[in-house]
């Protein structure tokens, strides 16, 4: 179901369409909000985003980009949410606080391509495809770490390599994923995948 036709239906009060939109975008927007805050808060933020969308459903633009609208709304809601709770945030250090503050400038969805690309409806497929492109050893370690939630120590033991080698593999996997996402290879792959 394409998102824009869902929007036309939500505009006229179709709760089912709203439910579908929520199911598609909730996990994506929650991961996006988790760039700024912890999990429970991110879930609150996303609930607020959808609550507002429903409240103002008549003003929705069925022709516009719903993806852009939802990211922007999550971004704004996150800023408001954190400013209300700034006393409850515990930073490990002043430096960490500063690093987290810069994140707000950097992750503005209207200026950050990579955010728009990763935190999209295709989040899962994009990552899946990008991981398939990694060199075998690198992919093996990356999958053990991310999918099986294994500790680096465990992975090192299982594969008979050092912990720092494991860390290097994971880090270089991240770097490669970044290159792939940046160069739009993924978009082409996805495009081809539609015809396979």
């Amino acid at each position: 179901m394409d998102a824009n036709s869902l929007i036309s239906r939500i505009k006229v009060g179709d709760r089912k369409a709203f439910g579908s939109l929520f199911r598609i975008y909730r996990p994506i927007l929650t991961s996006y909000a988790m760039l700024f805050m912890k999990n429970e808060w991110a879930e609150d933020v996303v609930q607020d985003v959808f609550f507002n969308l429903w409240q103002h459903r008549e003003n929705l633009d069925a022709e516009g980009s719903i993806h852009g609208y939802l990211l922007r709304s999550t971004y704004n809601t996150s800023i408001n949410y954190l400013s209300k709770r700034k006393h409850d945030i515990k930073y490990r250090s002043w430096y960490q606080q500063r690093i987290d503050e810069i994140a707000f400038d950097v992750y503005d969805p209207s200026t950050n391509d990579i955010i728009r690309k990763i935190y999209s409806e295709d989040l899962h497929r994009q990552i899946e495809h990008a991981i398939l492109q990694l060199p075998p050893k690198c992919r093996e370690v990356f999958c053990m770490s991310y999918i099986d939630d294994m500790q680096n120590k465990q992975i090192a033991k299982m594969l008979g390599i050092s912990v720092s080698t494991v860390e290097n593999h994971i880090y270089s996997a991240l770097k490669r994923l970044r290159e792939m996402l940046k160069d739009n290879h993924i978009a082409i792959l996805l495009f081809l995948a539609e015809f396979l």
Binding site: S31, M34, A103, I118, I127, Y146
Partner: peptide, 26 residues
């Protein structure tokens, strides 16, 4: 540097919190 660090963080976070992946992979 700034772009690199925050891009990596965004990707790390996306992989880490992709709910479908965790469910499907296990």
């Amino acid at each position: 540097n700034r772009k690199e660090f925050y891009d990596l963080k965004a990707i790390w976070n996306a992989v880490q919190n992709d709910p479908e992946r965790k469910a499907a992979a296990a």
